[in-house]
Write a protein that binds this DNA or RNA. Structure first.
Lengths: 345, 345
DNA sequence: CTGAAAGCGCTTACAG
DNA sequence: CTGAAAGCGCTTACAG
């Protein structure tokens, strides 16, 4: 016989679910008629529990769909082993190359890597905030949003990769200037007369990289032309190249902003019947392994991404450990490109 | 004057650090002379705190290198929003393509993605365990280790991608069989006489995919040859192709195990002066965008990785919500390849 | 083999 | 504007 309604809800959890949503260790303990401690022993395969009890506990856990909370556990077991990596577009071949380097190095030191692709994100700010909340330190590409994200991340140490200008946080610069000089010498030596810089930027606002290229060429007596592509993709590279070749103006070298664009250049040249490197020499930047899959293979200014990852991790872990300052006098490192001669130039 | 040594350590925390390692909210509260609650308000930019107090708290926090514990916070704010993704090698172009699809879809639903590359890992088991500890659900490629990892993951729901055989957990099959029939018909229609299957497997143990190809060809009256490459890389694809072309045996089509190998095939053909598709038709599997960067562009059996990601996420989230069974009668979905005709076949 | 107690670091109501 | 109390879910000693 049911009594009168009471003020406190007396609805017992239906089988297979608990009142407040997700089952906790207490629910399982109650269901199995044991203490929380015994549940822990059963769930984690610890010694000091009879087979029968263990079985009963596990059955109750399964029945209740119990999964231990990672927060409850983390709070007591600790764990400063989570690294956040902010990248721009995983579909750009450069990105996984970098991510692979970071993941491998991090794994060696027992760190897991959480990835945020802010290009794929619907709400990048929220995503970065969430990353910061789950992670002990964040490294990556921040672009123009670095100040904002620095605020969003609050106390989580932050290391910027390839900053556009003096950053407020730790940073690893990726510097092509030396290799551009070497490349320019190489172009002179191979008899190039009319080089074109295929930049990835807004018109009239060359990228830093584009400016370095122009400058190195000018100092060697060239009158280099610069072309601005809106996107750093192969399609854009191919399109601009078609346009360049269509003009029938002299042109015997194309220096692309990155390898992916340079692959587009190569492809457009092949289609137009332009011989590379015979008629036109082509150079990319990044040093992607991808560049060896095409014919001719792509000459490029290569970055050692393992070195970038190593510097970034060292910086990040140092900041975490408190050895390095977190802000203000930001700690910085530099990794330099080097000319990787393959077949296209 | 220092008193005699005591049994309990009386060393006050030196400025800038606390006794037990990392500073907690209590340390900051004590240093600033306020309550924990006030520290929370200051750290999280909440209202109801005077500017002066806030400043004092933040100064203390900075001084002590205080970072809120994500576990302490998570315990009270909750958060079932972390997805683990297990992949094999980020440097294989297929992997980032898949990862991008998962990350994007997950982000749309407010989920973060933590990545474990078990190929780059020194200790894959430990890495998967760590992934499980930080994550609410795990999806990915498990290969032959799926039973072990299923144990390691304990109660964390698991969805296997492209299983080799009937899996014990949720799974998304990626099924090429239909598209292989379509491809075989296409080869017949274009007059192919001597196709070769370039498999990625141990000798005498063709892959399931290789077997499907052989079978479809045989049913159409072909006597297909099969070649086994140890690695699914472009280098391996190129090597095997050189060997094949060197034999001077009839050969007018190569069906590669995947796109990356097929790119190696194309490259070897180009170097050998073999016209594709005139002399030899070449087909890959996966449908990587990469296949459009080469000349000729690569015909392929394409997978819709967005669909794979969508099915996997739906399965995973369903298992989490308890709508779908976690084990036993595992829930499965299927995504099929389709023939993507480009220039190479 | 099992359990009662304490505590991990934080936030959320609730008082004042 | 500020603080005392309770509690999030788990594990780690410590008793028995």
């Amino acid at each position: 016989m049911a009594g009168p309604p009471r003020l406190t809800p007396d609805a017992a959890p239906a089988p297979g679910q608990t009142a407040g949503g997700r089952a906790t260790i207490i629910d399982v303990a109650a269901a199995a008629g044991v203490s929380r401690q015994t549940v822990t022993r059963a769930m984690n395969g610890m010694p000091g529990i009879s087979a029968a009890t263990k079985e009963r506990v596990l059955a109750a856990a399964t029945q209740l769909h119990y999964r231990p909370s990672r927060f409850g556990r983390g709070l007591v077991t600790g764990g400063e082993h989570q690294l956040g990596l902010v990248v721009n577009d995983l579909r750009n071949p450069y990105t996984p190359q970098l991510a692979a380097a970071v993941v491998r190095l991090a794994a060696e030191q027992g760190w897991n890597v959480m990835l945020a692709d802010v290009d794929l994100a619907s709400d990048a700010d929220r995503m970065v905030a969430a990353l910061g909340a789950q992670t002990d330190v964040v490294i990556g590409y921040f672009g123009s949003r670095r100040e904002r994200w620095n605020e969003v991340l609050g106390t989580v140490p932050m290391v910027e990769l390839d900053p556009a200008s003096e950053p407020p946080t730790g940073a690893v610069w990726i510097d092509p200037s030396d290799s551009i000089e070497v490349l320019a010498d190489h172009l002179v030596a191979t008899g190039v007369r009319h080089p074109v810089v295929l930049d990835n930027s807004e018109p009239d606002e060359p990228s830093a990289r584009g400016l370095l290229m122009l400058d190195a060429l000018r100092r060697r007596g060239y009158l280099p032309e610069i072309v601005h592509a809106a996107h750093g993709t192969a399609e854009c590279g191919a399109e601009e190249t078609e346009r360049l070749l269509g003009r029938r103006r002299r042109l015997d070298a194309i220096l692309a902003f990155n390898d992916v664009m340079a692959l587009g250049v190569l492809s457009a040249c092949r289609r137009a019947g332009v011989d590379v490197p015979g008629d036109v020499r082509v150079v990319g930047v990044d040093g992607l392994p991808l560049g060896t899959l095409v014919t001719p293979t792509l000459t490029t200014l290569a970055v050692d991404l393992d070195a970038v990852a190593a510097e970034a991790l060292e910086l990040a872990l140092g900041m975490l450990a408190g050895e390095l300052p977190r802000q203000g006098a930001a700690v910085q490192r530099t990794v330099r490109h080097r000319l990787l001669l393959r077949e296209s130039a």
